[in-house]
Design a protein around this nucleic acid. Structure first.
Lengths: 161, 161
DNA sequence: TGTGAAATAGAGCCTGA
DNA sequence: TCAGGCTCTATTTCACA
């Protein structure tokens, strides 16, 4: 019910918070949007309580912090139990992400980070112990993310009067 | 060269910043680590300049903000050009992540977000125009992330005096 | 590591659509 | 009635020693 009422100011806020969630002040965003800092702060609170903003996280280079291995583990779970398993998998030491995929097979994609192969195999073993099948493992060489472009007002400057 | 000198204080900082990069003050982290807030702030600056912390980003629920489609696009690129293409792909409107995979085939994994199918097919077309082959597309039902457990001092309380 | 100046966030109030 | 903007106070940050 808190869905589609995302206007251009909200998008600009979301984009700014994706660019730099820690150092971007409400005043900075206010300057971009032509509003006041208190308005931006209240908008952010609303976006948070509506669940549009789920949280703020530092992006860490795991390689530089001593954990050079990043792997994708493709798992198969029975359909009814798939969703219930996700929180448990997220608690596992070394798992940084879990995605439910809409495919017949290999419907859980687990991203694991570790220092050595044994860290990863340990996670794979835990997944097996939960009753999951680990169908494939792929090593990730690089991983880059970027703010969502459709929140960027600059790039979508077509329909403003 | 800025690699392995990550001590327990650094790990606690990294964990705290992954938990809540925006609202976690240096003082909060100082209380956890038994140091002072100015020490924490200087540590953070060092982690940032060393590239261990790559940035801070808001985690957005794209579904609730009007973009319910999240897809994984598995692409094949010739090995020599693969790395050079990544920045260009990240610039594409709707792409939120690109990963280089260490496999013979399907060695680029692009995560795209959109409102409708045509948003995604548009991205797929752009990838084709770059000379990439889109080998497979998978819809993502849910996507959850979590802080890296090995940075959590609580969970690894074995070798403290 | 600790201190003082500047900036930022949060709560309450007021205005206008 | 409610969202935007203003003001005041408590925190937080930054630069300095």
């Amino acid at each position: 019910m808190a869905g589609e009422d995302i206007d251009d100011v909200d998008k600009a806020i979301l984009y700014a918070l994706q660019e730099d969630a820690r150092n971007m002040s409400s005043g900075d965003i206010a300057k971009r949007t032509g509003t006041s800092d208190s308005t931006v702060r209240k908008r952010i609170q609303r976006l948070e309580s509506d669940g549009v903003v789920k949280g703020y996280s530092a992006s860490v280079d795991y390689g530089k912090s001593g954990y050079p291995l990043r792997m994708l583990l493709y798992c198969t779970a029975s359909i009814p139990k798939r969703g219930e398993l996700v929180p448990e998998i997220l608690e596992m030491d070394g798992v940084v992400a879990v995605q439910e995929l809409v495919t017949g097979e290999q419907n859980l994609l687990v991203t694991a980070v570790g220092e050595t192969d044994s860290d990863i195999t340990s996670i794979a073993q835990e997944l097996l112990d939960m009753g999951l099948t680990v169908a494939d493992e792929v090593l990730v060489r690089t991983h880059e993310t970027t703010p969502f472009g459709k929140f960027d007002a600059e790039r979508h400057a077509e329909n403003d009067s």
